[in-house]
Amino acid sequence: MKRMVGEIMSSGARENWEPRTLPVDPEATGRLREWLTEEGFSLFGVELDFRGADLSGGDFSSSWFTDSVLAGVRLAGAVLYRADLQSADLTGADLTGADLVRANLDRALLRSARLDGADMVNASLHGVDASRASFRGTRIMGASLYGADMRGADLTDAVLFQNAFKVSVDDSTTVRGLTGSVFGPISLFSGESSREMGGAELEAWVAERGGKVEVIAPGSPPQ
């Protein structure tokens, strides 16, 4: 496998980068190999299965992973600037330190994914299932989270800034060191029941758990 990747990269199309491991699926491997020899094109990986791949450090700016399977794939330090990851399955994926600025993650599965230290500024995460995902130290500034499931997620030391933050949390959601400003409300789950929480109540809930956020009232001017 290593030899094959080396042969691909000899063209110089993707200078100074090669995948550490290619996908198990032949179709995904073929598409990736073609892309590695192209100049100036985004990877078109729609509906492909990339499981088994280690794509750490790759530049996938503006690439298309719509409806793709990236479960368990290593994408540590990868550049996914403006990438389309709508409805992609990223369950258990490693996105540590990844650049997800302006990425479209609407309806993606991020269950148990690791996004520690990732840059998610202005990303879109509508309807995302991020239950038990790790966002330790992640910059989620200006991102839109509508209907995002963050029950059991770890937001330790994550940074928010005027985020649309209509998310679902529960008592296992970690917010220690969480800072910034959000537009609420959030949905707090206890078992099968839930209630909305916003304003001073939400600020107090976060503070009790070691974080500090400002909840911005709708219609308030930017600070």
Results as ranks from 00 to 15, higher is better:
157 D>Q: 12
95 L>K: 07
214 E>K: 14
154 D>Q: 01
212 K>L: 13
222 P>N: 06
128 V>Y: 02
200 A>T: 12
4 M>L: 14
59 D>W: 01
172 S>G: 00
41 F>V: 10
72 G>Y: 04
77 G>E: 13
202 L>T: 01
158 A>C: 08
218 P>S: 14
62 S>W: 14
32 L>A: 08
220 S>F: 04
172 S>W: 06
193 S>A: 15
142 G>H: 07
22 L>V: 15
119 D>K: 11
36 L>H: 02
29 T>G: 07
216 I>S: 03
165 F>E: 00
109 L>M: 07
26 P>E: 14
45 G>K: 05
28 A>L: 04
46 V>M: 09
73 V>F: 08
76 A>N: 11
189 F>Y: 15
137 G>H: 06
73 V>N: 07
90 L>F: 09
35 W>V: 07
13 A>N: 11
6 G>K: 08
103 A>D: 01
148 A>T: 15
204 A>Y: 01
32 L>V: 04
203 E>D: 11
102 R>C: 07
223 Q>I: 07
118 A>G: 05
206 V>N: 03
195 R>E: 08
41 F>Y: 02
64 W>A: 07
43 L>T: 00
152 G>A: 11
182 V>N: 04
97 G>M: 07
43 L>K: 03
90 L>G: 11
89 D>K: 13
11 S>C: 12
185 P>Q: 09
139 R>S: 14
85 L>D: 04
74 R>A: 14
48 L>Y: 07
188 L>I: 14
5 V>G: 01
184 G>L: 02
30 G>H: 10
16 N>F: 10
218 P>D: 13
175 V>E: 06
164 A>Q: 10
29 T>D: 06
2 K>M: 05
14 R>A: 01
91 T>M: 08
64 W>S: 05
108 A>C: 04
27 E>M: 04
145 L>C: 14
89 D>F: 10
38 E>C: 06
123 A>G: 11
131 S>L: 01
40 G>T: 03
215 V>I: 14
139 R>H: 08
1 M>G: 13
190 S>D: 15
76 A>P: 04
170 D>P: 00
3 R>E: 15
33 R>P: 00
205 W>I: 06
98 A>W: 05
74 R>P: 02
56 S>W: 02
198 G>A: 10
19 P>Y: 09
82 R>Q: 13
153 A>T: 06
175 V>T: 10
24 V>Q: 12
104 N>T: 03
50 F>Q: 06
200 A>K: 15
97 G>C: 11
